[in-house]
Simulated scan of single mutants.
Amino acid sequence: MLRQSLVLFGLLVLAGCTQVPNEKIDERDPLQSFNRSMYDFNMDVLDAYVLRPVAVGYVAVTPTPVRRSIVNFTGNISAPTDVINATLQGKAGNAGVSLARFLVNSTVGILGLFDVATSLGLNIIDEDFGQTLGVWGIGDGAYLMIPGMGPTTARNLTGDVVDRFVLPKMALTTPQTVLVFALEAVETRASLIPQESLLNESLDPYIFMKDIYFQRQLYELYDGNPPVEKEPEDFDEDFLESL
Score class of each variant (00 low, 15 high):
39 Y>T: 00
100 A>C: 06
125 I>A: 13
61 V>N: 12
79 A>G: 05
119 S>H: 11
17 C>N: 12
129 F>Q: 08
47 D>E: 07
75 G>L: 02
32 Q>K: 12
59 V>F: 02
31 L>Y: 15
17 C>R: 14
77 I>A: 06
17 C>W: 11
116 V>A: 14
67 R>K: 06
122 L>H: 09
75 G>Y: 03
123 N>A: 11
24 K>L: 09
29 D>M: 13
24 K>G: 04
74 T>S: 09
94 N>M: 12
47 D>H: 06
123 N>P: 02
63 P>F: 07
76 N>Q: 13
85 N>I: 10
81 T>S: 04
66 V>E: 02
50 V>Y: 02
27 E>D: 12
118 T>W: 06
23 E>P: 05
74 T>H: 04
113 L>D: 06
51 L>V: 05
126 D>Q: 15
93 G>L: 11
131 Q>Y: 10
39 Y>C: 00
29 D>R: 13
111 L>W: 13
25 I>W: 02
113 L>Q: 09
39 Y>W: 02
66 V>P: 03
128 D>M: 07
135 V>E: 08
98 S>A: 15
121 G>S: 07
135 V>M: 09
65 P>R: 00
96 G>M: 02
48 A>Q: 14
43 M>G: 08
127 E>V: 06
88 L>C: 04
70 I>P: 02
86 A>K: 05
40 D>R: 14
114 F>T: 13
106 S>M: 15
65 P>D: 01
70 I>N: 03
74 T>R: 03
26 D>I: 08
28 R>Y: 12
36 R>C: 05
17 C>L: 12
126 D>L: 14
134 G>E: 03
23 E>N: 11
60 A>L: 05
110 I>Y: 14
134 G>T: 05
19 Q>T: 14
64 T>D: 10
76 N>L: 07
64 T>K: 14
128 D>G: 10
117 A>C: 05
76 N>M: 11
96 G>P: 07
40 D>L: 10
107 T>R: 11
27 E>M: 11
42 N>H: 09
115 D>G: 13
75 G>P: 12
84 I>W: 08
86 A>E: 02
76 N>W: 13
56 V>I: 03
122 L>S: 08
33 S>W: 09
86 A>P: 00
80 P>T: 01
120 L>S: 04
105 N>K: 07
130 G>F: 01
94 N>C: 11
12 L>N: 08
61 V>P: 14
57 G>H: 09
28 R>W: 10
67 R>D: 03
12 L>Q: 08
31 L>N: 15
133 L>Q: 01
125 I>V: 10
118 T>I: 11
107 T>A: 07
95 A>R: 04
57 G>Y: 09
73 F>S: 15
123 N>G: 10
71 V>L: 14
30 P>K: 07
62 T>C: 02
23 E>A: 14
122 L>I: 10
74 T>K: 03
12 L>W: 03
92 A>H: 08
102 F>V: 06
114 F>I: 14
